[in-house]
Amino acid sequence: AEIMKKTDFDKVASEYTKIGTISTTGEMSPLDAREDLIKKADEKGADVVVLTSGQTENKIHGTADIYKKK
C-alpha cells in the first residue's frame, strides 16, 4: 500500500472504496510508525493509506483510513 496525502487522495477518491481504519501506537520513530501503518494496510489488502491523525509526545499515535481500488 502507498501513503497518500489527503489533498492528493481527494483528486482520485472516486477510484477507491474505503475498507477500514488502522492505527499505530508506541515508542517508535515517525518512520517506524509509517512503516507499521503500511504493513497493517498491506495485511488488509489495501492499495492506499490516507493519514487522518498523528500525534507525538512521549509516544507516537497515528490513524489512517485504508482504501482498495474499485
Rank of each mutant, 00 (worst) to 15 (best):
K6T: 05
M28P: 05
E15S: 10
H61N: 09
T56S: 12
T63H: 08
K70N: 13
G20I: 00
G45H: 07
T52N: 12
K68L: 08
T21P: 01
V49M: 09
D10M: 10
Y67E: 02
A41D: 00
Y67S: 02
S29Q: 07
M4K: 03
E15P: 00
K44D: 03
E43D: 09
E27Q: 12
D32M: 11
K11Y: 06
N58E: 13
H61S: 13
K18G: 03
T56H: 14
T24N: 06
I22E: 01
G54F: 15
E27A: 13
S14L: 08
S23Q: 10
A41S: 00
S23M: 12
Y16N: 01
E2Y: 14
A33D: 03
A1T: 06
K39C: 07
K59R: 09
F9I: 00
T24V: 12
G45E: 05
T17G: 03
V48S: 00
K11W: 05
E35H: 13
K39N: 05
V12I: 12
P30C: 15
L37F: 05
A41C: 02
L37G: 00
A1F: 03
S14A: 13
I60C: 11
E15H: 12
T63K: 09
K44N: 08
G20R: 00
T52P: 09
I38D: 00
T25Y: 10
D47F: 03
G54L: 15
A33G: 05
T17R: 09
F9Y: 02
V12M: 06
G20P: 01
T21A: 07
K40D: 03
V49W: 01
T7Y: 08
R34L: 14
A1S: 04
G45W: 04
A13Q: 08
S53Y: 15
T24D: 03
R34G: 04
A1P: 13
I22R: 00
R34K: 07
T7R: 10
S29K: 08
D42P: 00
V48H: 00
D8C: 08
D47K: 03
E43L: 11
A41W: 01
D10A: 08
I38H: 02
D8Q: 08
K59M: 14
G62E: 12
K40R: 09
V49E: 01
S53G: 11
I60L: 11
A13T: 04
E2I: 15
K5E: 15
A1L: 07
A64P: 02
K68P: 01
I60N: 10
Y16K: 01
K44G: 04
T56E: 11
Q55L: 12
A41E: 00
T21M: 07
E43A: 13
T7P: 08
T56Y: 11
R34W: 11
A41G: 03
T56A: 11
T52Y: 08
H61T: 12
E35F: 10
P30D: 14
S23K: 09
E15F: 13
L31D: 15
K6F: 07
A1V: 14
E2A: 12
K5F: 14
Y67M: 02
K11C: 08
A1I: 13
Y16A: 01
T21H: 08
G62N: 10
A41F: 01
D42Q: 13
V48R: 03
H61E: 11
I19T: 03
D8H: 06
S23D: 08
K18V: 03
Y67F: 07
K69Y: 07
L37I: 05
I60A: 11
T56F: 11
A13E: 07
D65R: 01
D8N: 06
D8P: 01
D47P: 01
N58R: 04
D65I: 07
A33Y: 09
I38W: 04
V50S: 02
P30I: 11
T24P: 04
Y67R: 00
G54W: 15
Y67D: 02
Y16P: 02
M4A: 02
H61I: 15
P30H: 06
I3V: 07
K40A: 05
G45I: 02
K59T: 13
Q55W: 15
D36N: 08
K70G: 06
D65H: 06
H61Y: 15
V48Q: 01
M28D: 06
T17I: 15
P30A: 14
K59C: 14
E35P: 03
T63I: 06
A41I: 00
D10W: 07
L37K: 01
A64D: 01
Y67I: 00
T17Q: 06
I66L: 11
A13H: 07
G26P: 09
K5P: 09
V12E: 02
D65E: 09
E43Q: 09
T63V: 09
K44P: 00
V49N: 02
A41M: 00
V12C: 06
A46G: 04
S14P: 05
D47L: 04
D65V: 07
E57I: 09
D8M: 04
E15V: 06
K59P: 14
T24H: 05
E27N: 13
L37T: 02
V50P: 02
K44F: 14
Y16E: 01
G20L: 01
A1Q: 02
E35T: 08
E27F: 14
T21G: 03
K11A: 09
L37D: 00
T24R: 02
K68I: 12
G62Q: 15
M28Y: 05
I66K: 01
K18D: 02
V48C: 05
T56N: 11
K69S: 04
S53H: 13
I22P: 00
I19E: 02
R34C: 14
T21D: 04
I19H: 00
K40H: 05
E2N: 09
V50M: 02
A33V: 09
E57T: 08
I22Y: 01
S23G: 05
K6Y: 05
Q55T: 14
G54T: 09
D10Y: 06
K6N: 06
L37R: 01
L37H: 00
V49P: 00
Q55A: 12
K5V: 12
M28E: 05
K18Y: 15
E57H: 08
A46V: 02
V12S: 02
G45F: 06
V49D: 01
